[in-house]
Amino acid sequence: MPKVTMTVNGKAASADVEPRTLLVDFLRQHLRLTGTHVGCDTSQCGACVVHVNGRAIKACTSLAVQWDGASVTTIEGLASGDALHPMQEAFREHHGLQCGFCTPGMIMAAVDLVNRHGGVPDEATIRRELEGNMCRCTGYHNIVKAIGAGASAMQGSGKVAAE
């Protein structure tokens, strides 16, 4: 079995994996980082979104072996110690989650979209950018609000593209 080594949430992680091991299974099963979720098998729901080398991707549609040497950030690694990332705070403040299952992917996607767009994206942009993230609870209303607020807070905190 090939050995893969990655930096996950700032820490070195390595394991012998079958080539067919998906990145999400590597995270969930080998590293027990169960914050990253699996909600579909057609690469659409976005519950598994993580950042790899600074880009948001779907961890369910990627093999662990593809990312030997990469740097991965999951929802567990977004906060700095006890200090939540502004986007996490914004989701709580604006009730951007209910059952919480889509939330990790949603927050990782939100941080990525702010990083790519810079500034505070307007509502239409946020809604379009969420094409790859499904939520069945919130009707997206408060997620959109939270991302707008999180984007503003990121400008203030210098968290933009700071990973």
Binding site: G46, A56, K58, A109, D112, E129, G132, N133
Partner: peptide
């Protein structure tokens, strides 16, 4: 094409 995460790959 697809969504932002698909486009990244």
């Amino acid at each position: 094409i697809g969504d932002p995460h698909v486009r990244a790959m």
